[in-house]
Design a protein around this nucleic acid. Structure first.
Length: 586
DNA sequence: GCCGTTTTCGGCCCGACTGTTTTCAGTCG
């Protein structure tokens, strides 16, 4: 039983309770518990089975929910869930996924028209049976038909890297409206989440109508969904939704804070304000009716006794407590990066030559770059065997003589094979400056086998880092399952690095796993895995990920000069001799 | 359902917009 499954059961319970108009605070407790479980960073099942640990030590988990988690882990099911599900037809929950349809209306539709699936909903809407219901009308019925048609395109989150394109275009466009002051894209985009559901733009502007008209004139806008006095919502042609909030200048910081979220962070902040006899809303921080802060975010946080918290940390995962301490991390910045340690060339599946990649790295101001083409197993990419690899390294030596401004590391992305062995012998690896070991094949193996493969690689002293450690592709493939704790423990003991892969569709490890690894003493490398000159620019996405995990400059080796991590070069770090795993193949 | 040196009971974040009403419920973020 993995954490996402536990979280999913609690989410379902919350939905079912909501449909049955249960106590909203009880519903919130289940949603909170789902969040807590998702954010754990280790298997909830492991905590359940550890006699020294208690689930109800976690905030939001009390005796009751701890018992329910135990039940799910032990039996794979939650009796409460099945009891609730028995009272609600199975398809009814799907109705909640439609924008504008919540639990109240869904249950009205069911009670009055017997609607219990999206298909039945569509038929009822098309035969105009919905508008006759009390509380529904012509417009609601049309809206349902429309959102059913759009269901496939909307609700889909896009990669942060894609959202950035629209965020920047919209920002530039809106600045063209007269009277626009401060302007910022808030929401999950500002928190730099892996994926973004919509864009929330906060603008300080004297003339609301001017900036709203300006948004409506953006050429990618397909439709205006809502248009009020301070708020406007549009849908772009791609399906991406954009919310615009216009606030007075004195409220900009409060609005930005509020619309940046996350929801859980905002709730925590407001509760804290309450404790101090204050009220926080998007217009400011108020004592009674008097505004005591709101113009800037710094002011807002200061008013409730906290330093400013970077948006990337605002998930209510302990950042408020760190701010209070005050022990907020000094997050790593893009400009801290001194080199890229995972780069491909046309020698395998890259799209730019060795020389072009090196020159591009030099232009970025890097002091080193590692060329890490695929090893022979990756036949699709014409992976290199020992002979071809040594040929490439000779060319690197010649190139290095012509480019004294940058150190070129002779590396390889070494495949961790299905049987747990490595794709090249130690005799070759020991000649390499830099080895990134990755899994590409046998991703469907059992967690036990994958774990052993990763441990084998980690225990080889020539392996400097594990590349894209989970193999996930966001929105496409979940990534292979393995024992994160065992792998992180071994990585910490041996000094083997965990890569944070900056490809926007990869971004593994995720921020929860990174934070967990850091706790265990693991060090990281942020690499682009670039297959072209342009992809060297992906570094930003990897840094986003590192920042959300709370990493500082010194947690990441490629913020340092090469000499600082020289023991990782040429496999000079000590091999782990203790375990029997090192010689075992799987 | 959780939580607590003001509380073991009685709180639990807060406002905007829409569509439907004729003063507000439902939904959303």
């Amino acid at each position: 039983m993995e954490n996402p499954q536990v979280a999913q059961i609690f989410e379902e319970v919350a939905d079912l309770l909501e449909i049955q108009s249960e106590n909203p605070f009880r519903i919130r407790a289940y949603r909170r518990a789902a969040q807590v479980v998702s954010d754990l960073g280790e298997r909830v099942a492991d905590i359940v089975h550890d006699p020294d640990r208690r689930l109800d030590d976690y905030p939001g988990i009390g005796k009751d929910l701890a018992g329910k988690i135990r039940e799910i882990v032990d039996t794979g099911e939650l009796s409460l869930r099945s009891e609730l599900a028995a009272k609600v037809p199975p398809g009814l929950r799907a109705l909640l996924s439609l924008p504008g349809l919540g639990p109240k209306r869904a249950s009205t539709l069911y009670k009055n028209l017997g609607i219990a699936s999206l298909d039945e909903l569509r038929k009822a809407a098309e035969s105009h049976r919905i508008k006759a219901l009390k509380g529904f009308g012509e417009k609601t019925e049309q809206a349902i038909i429309k959102s059913l048609q759009q269901l496939k395109q909307t609700g889909k989150r896009i990669l942060w890297s894609e959202a950035k394109v629209y965020a920047e275009a919209l920002t530039n466009h809106l600045r063209g409206a007269s009277g626009v002051g401060q302007l910022e894209v808030a929401g999950s985009y500002r928190r730099r989440k892996e994926t973004v559901g919509d864009l929330d733009i906060v603008v300080a502007c004297k003339s609301t109508s001017q900036v709203m008209d300006r948004l409506a004139s953006f050429e990618e806008v397909a439709e205006v969904l809502a248009h009020g006095g301070t708020r406007m919502t549009v849908r772009l042609k791609t399906g991406l939704q954009v919310d615009l909030r216009v606030v007075p200048d004195v409220s900009f910081g409060a609005a930005l804070q509020y619309f940046t979220g996350s929801k859980a962070h905002s709730i925590h902040i407001r509760r804290r304000a309450q404790d101090r006899g204050l009220k926080v809303n998007e217009y400011g921080v108020f004592r009674g009716s008097r505004r005591i802060a709101g113009k800037t975010e710094v002011e807002v946080y200061r008013a409730i006794g906290l330093p400013w918290i970077p948006p990337e940390l605002r998930e209510d995962r302990g950042e408020v407590e760190l701010a209070e301490a005050p022990q907020l991390p000094d997050l790593v910045r893009p400009e801290d990066i001194k080199g890229d340690l995972h780069v491909h060339t046309t020698d395998t599946d890259g799209r730019a030559s060795l020389e072009d990649m090196v020159l591009a790295a030099k232009r970025r101001g890097y002091s080193y770059v590692a060329i890490t083409d695929h090893s022979r197993r990756v036949t699709m990419a014409r992976g290199l065997d020992a002979r071809l690899l040594r040929q490439q390294w000779k060319r690197i030596d010649r190139l290095a003589k012509r480019n004294p401004g940058i150190t070129i590391l002779k590396g390889v992305e070494l495949d961790i094979l299905e049987d747990g062995s490595l794709d090249l012998p130690d005799s070759v690896l020991q000649e390499a400056d830099w080895v990134v070991a990755s899994i590409h094949y046998g991703q469907n193996q059992s967690p036990e086998r994958i774990t052993r493969r990763l441990l084998n690689a980690i225990e080889n002293p020539h392996v400097a880092a594990i590349g894209h450690p989970t193999g996930r592709l966001i929105g496409k493939r979940p990534g292979y399952q393995f024992d994160l704790q065992a792998v992180f423990t071994a990585a910490a003991e041996t000094g083997c690095l965990m890569e944070i892969n900056a490809q926007p569709v990869r971004l593994d490890l995720d921020e929860v796993a990174i934070a967990e690894a850091k706790k265990k003493g693991v060090q990281f490398v942020v690499s682009t895995d670039a297959h072209s000159v342009e992809e060297l620019g992906f570094m930003e996405f990897g840094i986003n990920q590192a920042r959300r995990a709370g990493l500082e400059k010194l947690d990441i080796v490629n913020t340092r000069p090469l000499q600082a991590f020289r023991k990782l070069l040429r496999g000079a770090r000590p091999a782990k001799r203790s375990g029997s795993m090192a010689k075992v193949t799987v």
